[in-house]
Design a protein around this nucleic acid. Structure first.
Lengths: 207, 207
DNA sequence: CTATAATGCGAGCGATCACTCGCTTTTTCT
DNA sequence: AGAAAAAGCGAGTGATCGCTCGCATTATAG
């Protein structure tokens, strides 16, 4: 205890070189997930593609799970970036304009990296730390709820929590299924139709 | 080739005893999935819980995947049973009555075995044969589409495929999230509210 | 320049697990 | 009853894979 042992506390303190290593590892994980699927994604392979040794990998990520979690986090943060921005922009808009914007953003967000999104949704077992996607759902729920609360006078009498739940579920589902079903390129024409229709449904529901 | 070799073509022809074995295996798989999660579900363990040897397991199921697929199939058939029945019952009803019935059934269907449903949705990697959940979605889409087509005169002018897609996505999402979010027992009060609200949204959208 | 810390390496260990094979037991058929 | 087919058995095998450990290389401090 007297002497400071040169023990590495597993993953932290980064100087220049190591930051690049960490990035390379996360990037490699994402690429393998997309190109080969979750089953083929092994730590040895990740290290390999990242141009790094397994040993180094385990300096920064305590487990394979942690690596996948990092990819999920990065992806979710991209999505949440769009959503947060949209929700502040929308704060002063009436319901019809706001909903349209939110539906548009939801689909955009799902189109950021559709292949990765698909793999994350369909192949990653939500277990242990990976179960924390829930946190993002809670944040979205909170933000949307706050908006609806502030626009209550434009709405019919309705429980705001229930309305939030229904609207978020519906919008998310349409965006999700749109991206998953349409193999690759889905026309701008189609996207506009879906935005129109979903907006109509949700706005009609709220008023 | 001249002699009929007593080779078992791997899984088929069932006399009395073996049918029980197959059932026990599928049932055991479902139970382990629920109680221990997908990760802990190994073929040795399945055979163990089923009171059967691994050897026998592989007489009827060519792979672990096949076993899990059987569980998924059984569960989906239960759900599809309810949905098919509901859709025929509903054929002559006006949109508002029909949608209410369908929403109710959707939630009921998801409540058949919520824990299993959760595991299947969250922990099973949709890969290889397991990807065939899609077939059930197609059937639902077809059935709902046919109903909407037949009720076109009660509806505003709208592309029936798009409307089907939106309605099915929305209803399924609400049912799904309802069952997943509410930990265990969700009050009849809440269910009624959700049915009311979802029905309102969908009916409002269609007219 | 030397000492010390930080970063990187990769062969290989230990454990798990899907699956096989040679054999025994039970059922069916005649 | 006897034979043949069907069903059942479970120790063992081969391969995979997450992860460790002892050592090498590179950067920073004094």
């Amino acid at each position: 205890m007297a002497r400071t042992p040169p023990t590495k506390p597993r993953k932290n303190a980064l100087q220049a070189r190591s930051r690049a290593t960490v990035d390379a590892l996360v990037e490699a994980t994402a690429r393998i997930l997309v190109r080969e699927g979750f089953e083929k994604t092994s730590t040895n392979r990740i290290a390999d593609i990242a141009g790094v040794s397994v040993g180094s990998l385990y300096q920064y990520f305590p487990s394979k799970e942690a690596l996948v979690a990092a990819v999920i986090d990065r992806h979710n943060e991209e999505i949440m970036g769009l959503v947060r921005t949209a929700l502040t922009e929308v704060a002063d808009l009436p319901i019809d304009k706001a909903v349209r914007k939110l539906v548009t953003v939801a689909i955009e967000a799902h189109r950021i990296n559709p292949k990765l999104h698909r793999v994350l949704a369909e192949q990653i077992p939500r277990t242990g730390q990976l179960a924390d996607v829930e946190a993002f759902n809670r944040e979205i729920h909170t933000l949307v709820r706050a908006y609806l609360e502030s626009r209550r006078k434009e709405m019919r009498k309705v429980d705001v929590d229930v309305a939030t739940f229904i609207c978020v579920s519906a919008i998310e589902a349409v965006a999700h299924n749109t991206v998953l079903n349409e193999t690759e390129v889905l026309s701008e024409r189609m996207v506009r139709t879906l935005v129109d229709e979903t907006t109509r449904m949700v706005v009609g529901y709220l008023r």
